[in-house]
Design a protein around this nucleic acid. Structure first.
Length: 502
RNA sequence: GGGUCGUUAGCUCAGCUGGUAGAGCAGCGGACUUUUAAUCCGUUGGUCCAGGGUUCGAAUCCCUGACGGCCUACCA
């Protein structure tokens, strides 16, 4: 304890931090405390990949010298020789530090290093008597002093709140967490490749919208000072992307954030990442085939296989995805709902009321069926399933079906009981679109906070002519949850939204 | 938003029907030249989430609040 040295800093800190601070102060006094001259030439996992299979003797003979750097996560001091495990972006590798190879002074200095310190080391590769690839260190250097103690080395960080608030600690200590975010990155990378190789153009449309649109949801509001105008964080990029199709960008996609001012749960974060893509001269049936192909391709690229386990249940994307209408899906799991019941408005309303399911009393038969579906069937769709034929009243941007104007050429894809994708043939009739916007604004005036605004410029764009187009959105976070087998959306977002800490 | 469970040392966790707080890891001191969550001996460290109440006495019981997990509602 060097309490007398640093009384001011000591006040609200424990002794471990105080001791480490004292070591840092000593470093400042004797030289450069935060050097940036060490350059590594090897990564831990590459060393393992390259040399794990080599025999002890061959490795010794090769006299391979390497330079590595990373955070010290394990330390075993045995008098005149020590072992340390450092962790870099690729994995871990063991260092052997003995005074015979580093000299007495360097080994003594090493003993002062703490778990969590960031080190650079140089030495020759060898194998210990238990056969572990290690580096016989000749030079070792402290690159960054870590003042705060790491979580317990065996259990790591387990407190969920701390994992979310201090993700860096979660990443340092939990291999599983690093894996989840690697999968996330690979999914997005593979997705980009998938579109780019199919001649799609990646674009970025505004995140701040003067008129929030493209979805039914409550937006965040902000204000631009110079323009003195209200702006909304976007709830969807849809209307901008379709303007681009009007402009001749016939195949576009965007992977970016949406913001919705709604509840937070294991499936909802206020900001979440969406893929949206649009292709001219295609329809929703094409999209379903396209989606199956894309998900299979992503799975093979990221996981190496189309089969995965989600929360102990197997899913194989190689199987053809089922395609069911809303009523077919309901009846598949609940045969007791007869055609007569599902198609009789009064009977259906009685049923919904009896079950305590909330519904919009102004809805037609389709909307009521959807309310029943949401409550009774959606969560049971574990196998990948496209639900098709959504009612027009809940699909204000989708094209009406040729044979039945009450429904639209639209689908939603469900996997593991969750909506993963939503796609449809786009409504490109400007007069129908204007009429549907009017219906939405009426609902808004009647108090529906999520109803859409009337977007006059979007109508103007449609009036120039949107080619027949298919468009789809896929929730990236939920897809990552599926691929990485995570039960909560917070597990796949690096910094999920939480309340203020204080 | 509602329900429910939780919050004890830097971390992982014990702490029974109320008697004034413990272990392991980390730290500190010592031993140890091939360890593997190194081992062995010794040892420091606490606003028991916060505030109120009941009680001779509260980590423990009651109330209020904060934060979080899970379920649920709106939604993707």
């Amino acid at each position: 304890m060097k309490q007398d040295n640093q009384p001011a800093i000591m006040q609200d800190e424990n002794q471990i931090i105080a001791e480490r601070r004292a070591k840092l102060a000593e470093l400042r006094n004797t030289g450069v405390a935060f050097p940036n001259t060490f350059r590594r030439d090897s990564l831990a996992s590459e060393l393992h990949k390259q040399y794990d299979e080599q025999s002890k003797e061959a490795l010794e003979d090769s006299q391979t010298e390497v330079k590595v750097a990373g955070r010290m996560v394990l330390k075993r001091v045995m008098g005149k020789a020590s072992f340390a495990t450092i962790q870099d972006m690729s994995g871990r590798v063991q260092l052997y530090i003995s005074k015979d190879h580093t000299g007495q002074a360097a080994h003594d200095a090493f003993k002062q290093y703490d778990l969590g310190d960031i080190l650079g080391a140089r030495g020759r590769l060898f194998k210990t008597k238990t056969g572990e690839l290690s580096i016989r260190v000749t030079h070792i250097q402290l690159l960054t002093k870590s003042i705060r103690p790491l979580p317990e080395k065996f259990h790591g960080l387990t407190d969920q709140e701390q994992k979310y608030r201090q993700r860096y600690l979660d990443l340092i200590t939990n291999e599983e967490t690093r894996k989840v975010f690697t999968i996330r990155s690979k999914i997005i990378q593979a997705m980009r490749d998938f579109f780019v190789t199919r001649d799609y153009l990646e674009v970025e449309t505004p995140m701040m919208h003067p008129i929030p649109g493209g979805a039914t949801a409550r937006p965040f509001t902000t204000h631009h000072n110079a323009l003195d105008m209200a702006l909304y964080l976007r709830i969807a990029p849809e209307l901008y992307l379709k303007r681009l199709v009007v402009g001749g960008m016939e195949k576009v996609f965007e992977i970016n954030r949406n913001f919705r001012n709604e509840g937070i749960s294991t499936r909802h974060n206020p900001e979440f990442t969406m893929l949206e893509f649009y292709e001219a001269y295609q329809d929703y049936v094409y999209l379903m085939d396209f989606t199956e192909e894309m998900l299979r391709s992503l799975a093979v690229n990221v996981l190496g296989t189309t089969s995965m386990t989600y929360q102990k249940r197997k899913i194989d994307l190689a199987q053809p995805f089922q395609r069911l209408t809303i009523t077919q899906a309901i009846q598949k799991f609940h045969p007791e709902y007869t055609d007569t019941l599902l198609n009789d408005r009064t009977a259906l309303i009685n049923k919904l009321q009896a079950m305590g399911i909330s519904y919009n009393p102004n809805d037609g038969i389709g909307g009521l069926q959807l309310s029943l579906f949401d409550e009774t069937t959606e969560h049971l769709l574990f196998e990948p399933t496209f639900i098709i034929d959504y009612p027009a009243e809940v699909s204000p941007l989708a094209r009406r079906n040729e044979n039945n104007p009450d429904i639209t050429d639209r689908f939603e894809l469900y996997i593991a009981g969750r909506e993963i994708a939503n796609g449809f043939s786009e409504l490109n009739d400007p007069e129908d679109q204007a009429a549907r916007f009017h219906e939405q604004t009426k609902a808004k005036e009647a108090g529906d906070a999520e109803a859409m605004h009337f977007d006059a410029d979007y109508i103007r764009a449609l009036e120039y002519g949107l080619p027949p187009t298919a468009g789809e959105g896929i929730g990236i976070d939920r897809l990552v949850m599926l691929f990485a087998d995570c039960p909560s959306i917070r597990d796949v977002i690096l910094f999920p939204q939480l309340r203020r800490e204080d």
